[in-house]
């Protein structure tokens, strides 16, 4: 058994570039990630933050690796829930591969560097929502989950 981790795979009828854009662009991210947006220049080694609409920082970290539209690796720490932040750093790897002629396989792997259960529990709840939204948005133009329950 390795470190605590979460893996989610989904298949989306869209180009790799569109999936990448839905996950990262200022236009799409707030829709698919429940209002949050990224703050980064998307260069390897640069800082990265996920920011709520009111300016609070949800998560922070660093771009480890970026190969648009195939692979993005982030060092990632929760910033807004002390008990989750206490579990420290994680690594999030997002991979987009061709699947069928007009579909891609999207794999998100989130692994905690240390031990703990709360961080992985939180992302296990979050990623299926975000990625269900990305798939619906790209295939139907509509979101499956329109608002975040707070």
């Amino acid at each position: 058994m390795g470190k605590p981790s979460f893996v989610y795979v989904t298949y989306i009828r869209a180009s790799a570039e569109k999936v990448w854009s839905a996950l990262t662009s200022p236009e799409f991210t707030p829709k698919t990630w429940f209002g949050t947006h990224h703050e980064t220049d998307w260069k390897a080694g640069s800082p990265w933050r996920l920011v709520f609409p009111d300016g609070r920082v949800a998560d922070s970290g660093e771009i480890i690796e970026i190969d648009r539209p195939r692979r993005l690796v982030l060092r990632w720490r929760n910033e807004w829930k002390p008990e989750i932040k206490a579990e420290g750093w994680s690594r999030c790897t997002i991979e987009i591969e061709p699947a069928a002629d007009d579909a891609v396989k999207l794999t998100v792997t989130h692994q905690l560097e240390g031990d703990g259960t709360k961080f992985i529990e939180a992302v296990s709840g979050g990623w299926p929502r975000i990625l269900s939204n990305v798939k619906s948005l790209l295939e139907t133009g509509e979101l499956v989950l329109k608002e975040k329950k707070s």
Partner: peptide, 14 residues
């Protein structure tokens, strides 16, 4: 993934 597409769009991507 196919089930979701089938119900939302009436088609299956794979």
């Amino acid at each position: 993934s196919n089930l979701k597409s089938y119900l939302e769009t009436g088609t299956t991507p794979l």
